[in-house]
Simulated assay, not measured.
Amino acid sequence: MDSLDSVTLEASDPRAAADFHSAAFGLDASLVRVRASEAPTTGFRGFTLSLVVSQPGDVDALFLTARDAGATVLKPAAKSLWGYGGVLRAPDGTIWQIATSAKKDTGPATRDIDELVLLLGVEDVKASKRFYVEQGLTVNKSFGGKYVEFAAGPGTVKLSLYKRRGLAKVAGVPADGTGSHRLVLAAATRPFTDPDGFTWEPTAPRTVPA
């Protein structure tokens, strides 16, 4: 495999979760899918999804529609050394970061999303990096045992690795968690499970209307 094609979030009420994604973010359902699951899960699920946008006004616009759709604010949008952003938890439990590296607006606010990034919280970043390189992914950026970013093609999800406790801190939640990740990753690959228990499945073929 050479990229992460899509992610599937598992939810007790998949219809409600899909409706949230549409209302809050206007997300392409081919990138973020939802399916039913009652698998037990508690605490931090070990990952976040990030929406990268062009300017602070876009962050605020998405924050507003996400809150209106039922999200809970974990970290209010604010300025930082790296830019501007904040964190929310969706009604289904998924943690979303919305961020930009820009410090100022350069035009009217929109809800346009530049990148969708999946950050996996792992116990050993270097070991997980080696594992994923062996699966065929190409490293785009790497900062020792702290962070790894893999290359992503157009129309795919960017995959990054972060220390689990560090990612939980960024998200504003305790790092403890048990049970299912409630997440399945899809790519042009055989089924496998990574060292931290994240499950991968072959990408389902896209159906073309007759």
Rank of each mutant, 00 (worst) to 15 (best):
residue 127 A to G: 04
residue 91 P to W: 04
residue 135 Q to T: 09
residue 118 L to M: 06
residue 46 G to E: 00
residue 45 R to W: 02
residue 36 A to K: 15
residue 94 T to H: 03
residue 156 T to R: 11
residue 163 K to H: 08
residue 104 K to R: 13
residue 70 G to L: 13
residue 108 P to V: 08
residue 140 N to V: 14
residue 51 L to P: 07
residue 72 T to E: 13
residue 43 G to S: 05
residue 131 F to S: 11
residue 110 T to P: 03
residue 106 T to R: 09
residue 34 V to L: 15
residue 32 V to T: 02
residue 54 S to V: 12
residue 86 G to W: 01
residue 55 Q to P: 07
residue 33 R to Q: 15
residue 140 N to I: 08
residue 166 G to P: 04
residue 123 E to H: 13
residue 115 E to D: 14
residue 123 E to K: 14
residue 103 K to V: 11
residue 79 K to R: 15
residue 142 S to P: 01
residue 26 G to M: 06
residue 41 T to K: 15
residue 109 A to F: 04
residue 121 G to L: 01
residue 55 Q to S: 07
residue 79 K to I: 14
residue 123 E to D: 15
residue 104 K to G: 07
residue 131 F to H: 08
residue 148 V to F: 05
residue 23 A to S: 05
residue 127 A to S: 14
residue 124 D to V: 12
residue 87 V to T: 11
residue 70 G to P: 10
residue 118 L to K: 00
residue 119 L to M: 14
residue 115 E to P: 08
residue 112 D to I: 11
residue 29 A to M: 07
residue 64 L to Y: 05
residue 44 F to M: 00
residue 40 P to T: 13
residue 95 I to Y: 01
residue 78 A to W: 14
residue 29 A to N: 08
residue 127 A to T: 12
residue 129 K to D: 06
residue 102 A to S: 09
residue 80 S to A: 08
residue 53 V to F: 03
residue 109 A to H: 10
residue 63 F to E: 00
residue 125 V to H: 03
residue 82 W to F: 13
residue 147 Y to E: 10
residue 50 S to Y: 00
residue 166 G to Y: 01
residue 46 G to R: 00
residue 61 A to E: 04
residue 164 R to V: 12
residue 38 E to C: 09
residue 134 E to K: 09
